[in-house]
Design a protein around this nucleic acid. Structure first.
Lengths: 364, 364
DNA sequence: TTGAAAGCGATACCAT
DNA sequence: ATGGTATCGCTTTCAA
């Protein structure tokens, strides 16, 4: 996975004077230049009042001595920590979610593009509030991303209280207009998916959802139920499940239902990982996915679970979490740059993509 | 996934004087106490020469005012950044690896336990060297973890050059004794797995390996080949593959091989994710995993892919990456605390666990 | 266009 | 046991 340009890594490192590793500071640099620290600082930070010639001299010497400003000092002086925090409570990190990783990857790209650091705090559940407070009082980060809002969410209140800028990945029910968030249209995605199944003649559809104390899962369920209701159908609790989205969650539940008296002819699943489990169960029952039993899954476009190709394996509602991460980070940096601005959120639509896992209901 | 204790989050936040959010600093705190900053600092940091009574007063007032030291200032004063860096080049983060996430989760636990921050830098490939240099010169972190060492690895040279403490997750061939690392015994794990298959009568075994410019993948291949050689067998390149360990990688290759003239009777796979793909292929060919075709996979004990239960789905070599993360972090903190110490590494053994995916070769 | 000097908020040495 | 003061390395106001 790691490739190196040999011209960079293979050769000897340019330590002509052993200076590169010494760590020159601003004072030494300005001494060498017979300039004040002020001027050097200005030159390096692109202030306009520096003469072109001076700026050039400074840049060259800085380069030669391998100068880079000490971030702690700069942060102390400017009062900005140039870092964004992500707090992961144990309850979320125990079932360490690949979706989180993909989001982080996206956000991280944005951060480094803007010179920000990403700091991740893994904390015990009962220290989460503490973690946020410490980020604020100790000035560890200029803002945070709130992950996985619950249906009954409170973190935004704390964050407003302690005046820590934040962006929510997902939405906080009842606080949509007073917070900045990036979310996909979960309800609509699952409504569309359900309609597709209904159009294919499926009437008995199982919902394998994420944990329904989470906002996103509630919305998905709503979309599912809305679509059924629109055709005068009711959801059957006997074939609806809600859990962490693991592979066995999909397999075990699908297996159980398929063996029951009144098995579903289709599954609507909240995650590719569980969908893979469902497919396994279908196979183990001697049935064929997309023919005997249909599956639609949400696809977060995780890089290690590609579901693309001409005809994707799974029919899916797709929305890139990585992209969401990039955009959420951008919004947060905006807020930090101009705190007075009105909250502006981003509602992403999922694509409904036809793959190999759906077909008309058998015997139709 | 997120549970909150309502007594913490549900109620109103204690902003009795609006002070909590103000951010008191050391000077204000010491003024309020009629003590010098020196004494207050000492009291808070547990220095012995402070009277018990003073210490108590200080602690109480600090608590009341919600004082917490500004980390930037402290870092500047102490010269320690109290942070560990993880650099992720794009080549690794494009195929964003869940294994990385799990490792991070483990390391993160250790960091917060010791008051360290974890900072993650997502960088373009050709900026990786730069990223490390900047961490060193700008003093962004006190040390770094090196992820995914290649067979032809150079980062350790750079890190020694710039004097940045580090621990390797995995091993750097040829530098085992001069670096501190945490790795599992890849060669032995795959040797044992292969032996198990051979004992079951399998002679035609396919290897679906990770990218073989990575050290871990080479070692696994070695283990595989060693085991075959010990019984006078040779590996057949026609049924060996090496790639990013995605689900389709497993499925597509297994499918192709199973349909060939001389199909393998067993698969040795480097990752659960790909193993799931293999299982899917087997199902699609109308065969049964563990009966018609056997699979042994390496299991990194990823939380969203549990492979436990009385009889796990997959027979596997298992080693917890999360644990590796914890230990690697501990070793790094040790090094930082006492830099002169000899490098001491950790070689973890994988367990070989029998699951449902293996059985005697058919027709035996 | 350049520089002197005052912060930023802690720690730590040297006195007392 | 407590306090004064220099220091960490940078930014930024104010002067020149």
């Amino acid at each position: 996975m790691l490739h190196f340009n040999n011209s960079l890594f293979g050769g000897r490192f340019q330590s002509v004077l052993g200076i590169m590793s010494k760590g020159v500071n601003l004072r030494e640099l300005s001494n060498r230049l017979n300039l004040s620290q002020t001027t050097v600082s200005r030159a390096l930070n692109g202030y306009p009042e520096v003469s072109a010639e001076t700026r050039k001299r400074v840049a060259e010497m800085a380069d030669e001595l391998g100068y880079a400003p000490n971030s702690q000092a700069r942060r102390l002086a400017t009062g900005r920590s140039m870092a964004i925090g992500h707090v992961i409570p144990r309850s979320i990190h125990e079932m360490m979610n690949p979706i989180f990783l993909e989001f982080i990857a996206g956000a991280g790209e944005t951060y480094s593009k803007h010179g920000y650091d990403m700091i991740i705090s893994v904390v015990e559940d009962d220290h989460e509030e503490d973690a946020y407070r410490q980020i604020a009082t100790r000035k560890k980060a200029d803002g945070v991303i709130v992950h996985g809002p619950a249906a009954d969410e409170h973190r935004h209140r704390l964050l407003k209280e302690i005046n820590l800028p934040f962006v929510v990945h997902g939405r906080i029910p009842g606080a949509e207009s007073e917070t900045t968030w990036v979310d996909m249209n979960n309800r609509r995605a699952f409504e569309r998916a359900t309609n597709l199944l209904l159009d294919l003649g499926h009437q008995r559809i199982s919902l394998l959802n994420g944990l329904e104390h989470m906002d996103f899962a509630r919305r998905r369920r709503k979309g599912f139920e809305d679509a059924l209701a629109a055709r005068g159908l009711a959801a059957d609790n006997a074939i609806m499940r809600s859990s962490d989205m693991t592979e066995p969650f999909g397999c075990d539940n699908a297996m159980e239902m398929l063996k029951s008296d009144n098995p579903p002819t289709a599954f609507l699943v909240s995650s590719m990982i569980s969908a893979i489990g469902v497919a396994r169960a279908i196979g183990q029952c001697g049935l064929e996915t997309g023919k005997d039993v249909s599956i639609i899954t949400h696809d977060d476009a995780l890089s290690f679970l590609p579901n693309s190709g001409e005809v994707p394996i799974f029919t899916c509602t797709r929305s890139s979490v990585r992209y969401a991460g990039q955009r959420a980070a951008e919004l947060l940096l905006d807020i930090i740059a101009s705190p007075q601005r009105e909250p502006s959120s981003l509602h992403l639509d999922a694509e409904l993509i036809i793959g190999q896992s759906t077909g008309p209901v058998p015997g139709r």
